[in-house]
């Protein structure tokens, strides 16, 4: 489902280039829950962004559902991402002026067309947010915000869910609820790639892949 083959990424910093990601192979199959663990700066988020088609790697190949992400044009990639990849972030990234229901339906605006509003309500119900539909993110607890973000990511039934430290701001109880939803999703055939530095969270994944703190510097020229 998700296949990163020998992907690397460096970032410029003055005259130097910081290696964010050494050659890395990651594979997540349908129905598989993979946790990517490593210390800060090990390239976990970079890896996730590459897998989501948001960050072109310096080398290597990134594909989802057999499609080479970076062989597509920007617009093709945007459409593909919309239909196949769901993102969940540690900071939730909910749109502050939209209600819970509207946030769940926000990917429709990103796609430029409104679809079935019933799907948004069903997701809200599924994630225990039915009593919060008209509330804005500012009125939600951290757990509710993350559940809203999760519901939003699943609006178009993506094949892959990419989650970046999604329990980082949650207490243990809410973290378990959210992880429970991820397991449900995996159980329905979805693929999850979860970035975390929390061993306990990682332990709930079917498989854990470790990233060493391999940051290197080399001369830009």
């Amino acid at each position: 489902m998700v296949a990163l083959e020998r992907v690397t990424k460096t970032y410029p910093k003055g005259n130097l280039r910081i290696t964010a990601l050494a050659p890395l192979d990651v594979t997540v199959r349908p129905g598989e829950f993979v946790a990517l663990q490593g210390p800060s700066g090990s390239g976990k988020t970079t890896c996730l962004l590459i897998a989501g088609g948001l960050l072109r790697p310096d080398s290597g190949k990134a594909s989802v559902d057999g499609r080479d992400l970076y062989a597509m044009s920007r617009n093709q990639l945007a459409s593909f991402r919309s239909g196949n990849i769901g993102f969940v972030f540690q900071q939730y990234h909910l749109i502050p002026y939209l209600t819970v229901l509207e946030n769940i339906l926000a990917p429709e605006a990103a796609q430029g067309e409104a679809k079935d509003p019933g799907r948004g309500r069903a997701l809200a119900e599924q994630f225990g947010l039915e009593h919060r539909l008209d509330h804005t993110p500012g009125e939600l607890s951290a757990g509710e915000k993350q559940r809203t973000a999760l519901a939003r990511a699943l609006l178009f039934n993506p094949k892959v869910l990419l989650a970046d430290e999604i329990t980082g701001n949650l207490d243990h109880e809410n973290a378990q609820i959210v992880l429970g939803f991820l397991r449900e999703y995996v159980g329905s055939g979805g693929a999850v790639l979860l970035v975390t530095h929390d061993r306990e969270v990682a332990s709930q994944a079917g498989r854990v892949q470790y990233l060493a703190c391999c940051t290197e510097t080399e001369a830009a020229r």
């Binding site: 989501g52 948001l54 920007r74 617009n75 945007a78 459409s79 991402r81 919309s82 239909g83 993102f87 972030f89 900071q91 990234h93 749109i95 502050p96 926000a106 990917p107 605006a109 990103a110 796609q111 430029g112 939003r152």
Partner: peptide, 19 residues
């Protein structure tokens, strides 16, 4: 900025952001 980044992550094209 953040809202635009998320919308792009959710599949918004450049033209959608422009719109």
């Amino acid at each position: 900025r953040s809202e635009i980044g998320v919308l792009r992550a959710l599949g918004a094209r450049s033209s959608t952001i422009l719109r």
